[in-house]
Design a protein around this nucleic acid. Structure first.
Ligand SMILES: [Mn+2]
Ligand SMILES: [Mn+2]
Ligand SMILES: [Zn+2]
Ligand SMILES: [Zn+2]
Lengths: 149, 149
DNA sequence: GCCGCTACTGCAATATCTTGCAATAACATC
DNA sequence: GATGTTATTGCAAGATATTGCAGTAGCGGC
């Protein structure tokens, strides 16, 4: 089966997780975590900054991005990149998955578990490479666009 | 077999290719193409700007990036993204290929043709998706790092 | 060789993300 | 509840990339 690290998380336990690691629980980090706890699925770095700014106009982007780095180290979020290379965070979205982006229509989909499993297995066998599935972004052309053109 | 659009190109024919399309051949575009013609394999957008600036200190980044867009439309280069999402251009590098990046050691490799072929076939079958192989970047952990840790 | 059309450039503003550094504020300890 | 340690923040600068717009200059036609 495909690697399946579940991202579902008890946000209420996060402050304790921070302190247990010698990290500090600050108002700025609380704001980021509150926004994330209300997010399901995906959010870009810029969107997160925007939503934090909506609650607190003083929000500083570098603080938000540094908080994301910490949350990712703790395994509470994972990031990938959109078709243009921008960061996209996976939050509370269940099992790991990669994304498919259609360059023609702009649509995006999660890579099916079946395909993910085969891709991970293929690169493990032929190249000895262990894939970070959450980070996988495949750009190309979707079935609909292929048919319509 | 895997898609195999060859990028080997006769740079001397480029000015005529531009004009045939109603595009103009300018000193700025000539500089970009000259740098590319001396490049084999890969170059990031920033590196290209830097090398153009080395020949002409007046080089404007937006002009370079716009020239890259045109060259890509003409099929003379293709871009992908590094592990951090930054643009990387494939130039004169033979058949299309994707890349593997080890997040641990920072190493990078081209995805083997065998693996590429299976990945392209898998996504075509299971998700009806036609992959742009040049744009594929897979991040994870290489064999050496896996063994050493 | 000149002219006109319009593709292209330069520039300034904007978006996203990172980094170094000095000042600040968590929090463990007492 | 005061204190010291040091993790964290705010800020400024920088790297990379995109966009709108007004002025410039390629180049096809004469
Ligand atoms: Mn791209
Ligand atoms: Mn990344
Ligand atoms: Zn599509
Ligand atoms: Zn490695």
């Amino acid at each position: 089966m495909a690697t399946s690290t579940d991202l579902r998380v008890s946000w209420s336990a996060v402050p304790a997780r921070f302190r247990a690691r010698g990290l500090r629980w600050t108002p700025q980090r609380r704001a980021v975590v509150e926004v994330l706890s209300e997010t399901d699925g995906h959010i870009t770095g810029a969107e997160l900054v925007e939503r934090c700014r909506a609650r607190d106009a003083q929000t500083i982007p570098s603080t938000v991005y540094r908080t994301l780095d910490v949350l990712e180290e703790l395994g509470l979020v994972r990031h990938g990149h959109g078709a243009d290379g921008r960061e996209e965070y996976h939050v509370g979205a269940g099992p790991e998955h990669g994304h498919l982006y259609c360059a023609t229509c702009g649509g995006s989909w999660e890579i099916s578990d079946a395909a993910a499993e085969r891709i991970v297995a293929t690169l493990a066998e032929t190249d000895g490479f262990e894939v970070d599935l959450s980070h996988v972004t495949v750009v190309g052309r979707c079935r609909a666009c292929d048919a319509g053109a």
